[in-house]
Amino acid sequence: MRLGYMFKEAVRALLSRPVTVQSVTKGESVPVPERYRGMIEYDREACIGCLMCGKTCPTGTILNTEAHKVEFRMDRCVFCGACADICPKDAIKMSSKSEIITRDRKQLLVK
């Protein structure tokens, strides 16, 4: 009887731990893997100012504000990782930081 299948599933679900975590009320979180594309980390010393990252960024996140250096306006970023991929000196890395919500826009500027 196929109705029995769903009943068995429901009982099995009752007896096992839930798959969701309570991140707001209890602060639990799920670990992210190594290749995760989070907040950008910019190594200013290594950057040579070739501006290839700005050329390949689809959203206009990367701005050339001073000579041979860039800055990132993260509120425009879509985390595609094209900049990290194309940088010849590996000056751009994408970290595992995923919670970057803030009320102050200046906190989203990576220099």
């Binding site: 992210v32 893997p33 290749r35 594309r37 879509v78 595609c80 990782g81 991929d85």
Partner: peptide, 18 residues
């Protein structure tokens, strides 16, 4: 979710894999 977690491990993101 198992498939999406696999995507995250291989490509870095659950959808938009780049």
């Amino acid at each position: 979710e198992a498939v999406l977690d696999l995507f995250e491990e291989v490509t870095g993101n659950r959808v938009h894999h780049s």
